[in-house]
C-alpha cells in the first residue's frame, strides 16, 4: 500500500488506545510486584507496581520439590494433543457444515448447537469417563472437551465467508472434498485457526478442574491443578499446629497473596509467551491467492 500522511487523528488514536491498553496490563504488573514482595509489605497494602522488600520466597516455594516442572510437562503434553485434536475436529466439522447444499445440514448444526445450551452435569460425565476406563489417562483431559462447539461455529462462519470460486477452481481440476479441504481451504484458514487455536490452548492450559477429578495421583496433575493445591488454606495450616523448620520460614514470608501471585504469574507465563507468536497469523494470510469476490 502506498504511504498516506500521518495526521493528528493518527496520533490521537495511537495515544488514546495506548492509555486503554496500559490499564489492561497494570493489574498484571501489580501482580508481578506482589509476587516479589514480602508478605508483610503485601498485607499492609504497600505494594503498588514495584516490589517492596524484594524476595524470591514465593517462587522458591512454588518451584521447590520438582513437582512444578513435572506438572508443567504434563500441561504441555495436554495442550499439545488437546489443541491438535480440537483443531482437527473443528476443521473437519466446520468445513462440511459450511456447505449450504449439505443434506441435513440444519440437523447437524442443531445437534452441535444444543450442547452449548444444555449439559448433563459433572456426575454423569465423570461416570462415563470412569466406565470408559479413561481415568488417570491423558484422555480424560482431552476427549470430553474435544469438540469446542462455540469455536467450531466461529470457524464455520469464516469458511462460509471464503469466496466460492476458489473451491470451484479445485473441483474443475478434479479434486474431491478431502483434497479441497486439505489443499485449498486449509491454507486459507490461517488467521481463524490461529484465533480458535489460541482459545483452545488457553482453555486447556487454564483448566484445573478436570485434572482434579480425573487424576488420582497428584504426580499426574497438570500445572493449574497442581498450582490450585498450593493455595494455602491458612486455617488448615493453623489446625496442624506443629509446623516447624524451613517451611515455616518460607511460609512466614509468603502469605497466601504473594504465593498466589507467584503461582498465577508462573502459570500464565508460558501461554502468554505463545500468544504474540500466534498473533502474527491473525493479521496475515487470508487474502493470499484468493479470487476476488
Amino acid at each position: 500500500m502506498e504511504k498516506k500522511k500521518i495526521t493528528v487523528f493518527d496520533i490521537i488514536l495511537a495515544v488514546g488506545l495506548g492509555v486503554v491498553c496500559i490499564t489492561c496490563i497494570l493489574p498484571f504488573i501489580h501482580l508481578l510486584a506482589v509476587s516479589f514482595s514480602s508478605s508483610a509489605a503485601v498485607s499492609a497494602g504497600k505494594v503498588g507496581f514495584l516490589p517492596v522488600e524484594f524476595t524470591m520466597a514465593s517462587y522458591e516455594y512454588v518451584i521447590s520439590g520438582g513437582r512444578f516442572l513435572r506438572a508443567m510437562t504434563i500441561s504441555v503434553e495436554r495442550v499439545f494433543w488437546g489443541t491438535l485434536l480440537n483443531l482437527a475436529l473443528m476443521v473437519l466439522t466446520a468445513y462440511p457444515l459450511s456447505k449450504d447444499e449439505l443434506l441435513g445440514r440444519k440437523f447437524f448444526v442443531a445437534f452441535f448447537f444444543i450442547t452449548m445450551l444444555i449439559g448433563g452435569g459433572m456426575i454423569p460425565t465423570y461416570l462415563l469417563v470412569s466406565k470408559l476406563g479413561l481415568k488417570d489417562t491423558i484422555w480424560a483431559l482431552i476427549l470430553p472437551g474435544a469438540m469446542p462447539v462455540y469455536n467450531m461455529i466461529i470457524l464455520m462462519n469464516f469458511v462460509r465467508g471464503l469466496p466460492h470460486e476458489i473451491e470451484e477452481a479445485a473441483w474443475i481440476d478434479g479434486a474431491n472434498a478431502f483434497q479441497t479441504l486439505v489443499l485449498v481451504i486449509f491454507p486459507l484458514l490461517g488467521p481463524s485457526l490461529a484465533t480458535v487455536g489460541l482459545f483452545s490452548m488457553v482453555n486447556h492450559w487454564n483448566d484445573w478442574f478436570n485434572g482434579m477429578i480425573y487424576m488420582s495421583e497428584p504426580l499426574n496433575y497438570p500445572l493449574q491443578t497442581y498450582l490450585q493445591t498450593l493455595l494455602v488454606d491458612f486455617e488448615q495450616l493453623l489446625q496442624s499446629s506443629s509446623s516447624t523448620g524451613d517451611i515455616q520460614a518460607i511460609l512466614s514470608k509468603m502469605s497466601a497473596r504473594t504465593g498466589r501471585a507467584a503461582q498465577l504469574f508462573l502459570g500464565a507465563l508460558p501461554i502468554m509467551m505463545v500468544y504474540p507468536f500466534l498473533q502474527k497469523y491473525f493479521t496475515k494470510g487470508l487474502t493470499i491467492g484468493s479470487v476476488k469476490g
Binding site: L89, T93, T115, G120, G121, T125, L127, M147, F178
Partner: peptide, 17 residues
C-alpha cells in the same frame, strides 16, 4: 468428515444428558 465430531459429541455431550 462429520463423523468423528458427531461421535465424540454424542458420547461426551449427549450420553451424560
Amino acid at each position: 468428515m462429520l463423523l468423528p465430531g458427531v461421535v465424540i459429541t454424542f458420547i461426551f455431550c449427549y450420553i451424560p444428558l
